[in-house]
């Protein structure tokens, strides 16, 4: 093979440039920490990275939705617990009122105690998270419970408040205030009516024979029995809120795990393997230096140097 001066020079130039191109690439990867800096570095990988990014961003949103649901349900649960305890307090007052052999003054005191507990219960029913009434259905800016005299009316809306915790997967973040508390308020109003001027204290406990005379107790059971079934209903709603809470918290746990694995998946494709890059960089540096040394030796020489 005939080797000419131009061949040597262009080979030296090409090999030095090849090494420098590779050096630049490895340096770019190490500097950014990413194996993919442009879609052309790995088109399929880029597609995956983008789709995983979308999944990660959605997951973050679902986590924040689940947290929001947990906040709502936390407030709902504690409000319902307070409501149960207030209702039971009222029940024991009613039991003592129905025991008989009480003076009118004593009965009036009990009625006042019950009325004050009822007001507290109305406040509980009007609990807010942020600016929203949590027992008012979707009418979150309307106060759900209004008290006039002994009667309490529900003015809120219907419908559920939902939070998305997965694609097309929702958790209910509220409890139906109307269903939970309205029977309780009705039972309390019935008790207060029977303890009041037109009522009969005996009906608190029994009331079966006088069915129809108390506008708040359709009968035939007594006021206490009506309160008991309202409390049972309230406890059921509380239990349901607890179950929803459990669902939201489970979702949070799953979403966190999913986020970690998505990030690992994305990182596996996107992130640079630093150890590998360092080794590669060192190899390239050695190559580069030997290429330089070889070039400087070969390029200096020709027969002309030895002719005198």
């Amino acid at each position: 093979m005939r080797v000419t001066s131009g061949m040597t020079a262009s080979m030296v130039e090409t090999s030095l440039q090849n090494i420098q191109t590779q050096l630049a690439q490895v340096q770019g990867q190490m500097a950014s920490g990413h194996r993919i800096n442009q879609p052309s570095d790995d088109p399929i990988g880029t597609e995956n990275v983008l789709q995983w990014q979308n999944a990660i961003d959605q997951n973050t949103q679902y986590q924040s939705n689940a947290q929001d649901a947990v906040n709502w349900l936390g407030s709902t649960q504690s409000a319902l617990q307070q409501a149960v305890s207030l209702a039971q307090q009222i029940r024991s007052l009613a039991v003592s009122a129905g025991a008989g052999s009480l003076t009118a003054a004593q009965l009036q005191t009990i009625a006042q105690q019950i009325a004050s507990a009822e007001s507290s219960l109305v406040n509980v029913g009007n609990t807010k998270v942020g600016d929203s009434y949590i027992f008012s259905g979707q009418q979150t800016s309307t106060q759900p419970f209004t008290q006039s005299g002994t009667a309490v009316t529900y003015g809120g809306g219907s419908g559920t408040i939902q939070r998305e915790i997965g694609p097309g997967q929702f958790v209910q973040a509220n409890a139906d205030g109307n269903a939970a508390l309205t029977p309780v308020f009705q039972a309390i109003s019935a008790i207060l009516y029977d303890l009041g001027p037109g009522g009969n204290p005996a009906n608190v406990a029994t009331g079966a024979s006088l069915s129809g005379t108390n506008p708040y107790n359709p009968g035939p059971q007594g006021d206490l029995a009506q309160l008991d079934s309202a409390i049972t209903n309230l406890t059921d709603v509380e239990g349901q809120a607890g179950a929803q809470m459990q669902q939201a918290q489970n979702a949070q746990g799953q979403l966190t795990t999913l986020a970690t694995s998505l990030q690992q998946l994305q990182g596996g494709v996107l992130n640079d393997n630093l150890a590998q890059s360092v080794v590669q960089l060192q190899e390239l540096q050695v190559n580069y230096q030997s290429a330089l040394a070889a070039a400087s030796t070969i390029l200096q020489q020709s027969l002309a140097s030895y002719l005198h």
Binding site: P39, S40, E47, Q51
Partner: peptide
Amino acid sequence: PSDFYAAFVGGLGADAQAAQ
């Protein structure tokens, strides 16, 4: 939309890679 955009970017990357 995310799939579509990812496919667009992937297609661009594949074109560039083929040229390179």
